[in-house]
Design a protein around this nucleic acid. Structure first.
Length: 114
RNA sequence: CGAGUUAGCCAGACGGUCGCAUGAAAUAUUGAGGAAAGUCCGAGCAUCAUAGGGCAAGGGUGCCGGGUAACUCCCGGUGAAGGUGACUUCAAGGACAGUGCAACAGAAAACAACCGCCCGCAAGGGUAAGGAUGGAAACGUGAGGUAAGAGCUCACGCGCAAAUUGGCGACAAGGCGCGGUGUAAACCCCACUCGAUGCAAGAACGGAGGCAAAAAAGUGGCCCGCAAGCCUCCCAUUCGCUUGAGUCGUGCAGAAAUGUACGACCUAGAUAGAUGGCCGUCAAAUACAGAACUCGGCUUACAGACUAUCUCGCACA
RNA sequence: AGGAAUGUAGCUCAGUCGGUUAGAGCACCACCCUGAUAAGGUGGGGGUCAGUGGUUCGAGUCCACCCAUUCCUA
């Protein structure tokens, strides 16, 4: 997951939360909204998930999982991934599956049948 | 062998591979902790403010000596409390400077006197042995003494404690003498000490607006003093930001904390915020937990492993 | 990251300078009233004072540590 692909501004997050389409999978929620600047992905891991160590771990797993399917994601959108507390106990494989499933449900994977 | 005590130490290692941060760049280098935590103390640094003095108010600390940049921290000792013991714990100055408080119960909770005892016809006076209460009752027990009694006297005991001796000192030994309720994490007294705010401090570059120029804007709570430039907003680029009371090793000084000399080393610096995924080997890799200006402590959380010290109990020699 | 505040009954809050058995309103339960309900009346239950330790004869109150929640600062 490249640095320029990240969603940073608070205003952008707020826009996606307000306008975005929602798609949930397992312990994840994916929000997506049209983007002018190409692909942007933000991660939201709240304090409910755990302490600083577990939150960092969840974010790393999500970045790793996104990096795997990065070429297949539709580039015209901004995305925000919200993690639920149960995600903290999942293994890497489960996280990968959840991320892929979420994007698939939202219809944002290129070269795949709906 | 069992149960304990104290001190120290580690906080996975190595290899492969795909990524992340640093970096001009590379197949290179480095890359979270013992607590990075809580934010409870002490400093550096910055601003208030260009430099400085005094006063008031308020806060902190509180046995002694040493260590330290400094501390409420550390080391060693003293005293007190706990433990069979090794050892552990302690906000540990002052209650004859003054004031307050001590509910209920009780005669009375601090300038004692209800019942009682004694003297006396009575009025009144003397007295505190005995009395229920209470956390605490005006030194305790016994004897002498007396009208009845009382440290009034004596013995033993408890508390305070002068001279003298030892110690740098706290203090210890000592005991002339004294007879004293408890509470200062109640106000307070004494001694020492502290300006406030915090890197979201603040500085530079750029843009917009406003105030003031000597009867002077402004200026930390006040006074003195200082004072010609100052204030507000926007942007969030750069600096602050990592070489520091630094780390490691050896020698020396010291009982220790620690200091010092020499040599070697440079060891995170992100900014929506870098350490992760997979595989292999080691019996196993698992606890608490993620740097955000930087140090020194304290406190709290914590799987497992190792080393040494001493104590007690049992058995055997 | 830095700074500050608050935890008392199911809910919202009192509790002064440490003192006997921690109160109030709403809610809850029972009874009265009504043909029945509401309102009203009478009575009752319910608290580890967030937690741990200390000071004191005695702590919701004082002190230290600690947990949770909330707010402020770009």
């Amino acid at each position: 997951m490249q640095k320029q692909d990240r969603l940073k501004k608070r205003a952008a997050f707020a826009y996606v939360y307000r306008k975005g389409e929602r798609a949930s999978a397992h312990n994840l929620l994916l929000l997506s909204a049209k983007s002018r600047e190409g692909l942007k992905i933000g991660l939201s891991v709240t304090k409910k998930v755990g302490n600083a160590v577990t939150r960092n771990r969840v974010k790393r797993l999500l970045r790793e999982a996104i990096g795997k399917i990065r070429p297949r994601i539709d580039e015209g959108y901004m995305y925000v991934l919200v993690a639920y507390p149960e995600l903290a106990t999942d293994s890497f494989e489960e996280v990968c599956a959840a991320v892929e499933n979420a994007f698939s449900k939202a219809g944002k994977l290129v070269g795949e049948e709906q």
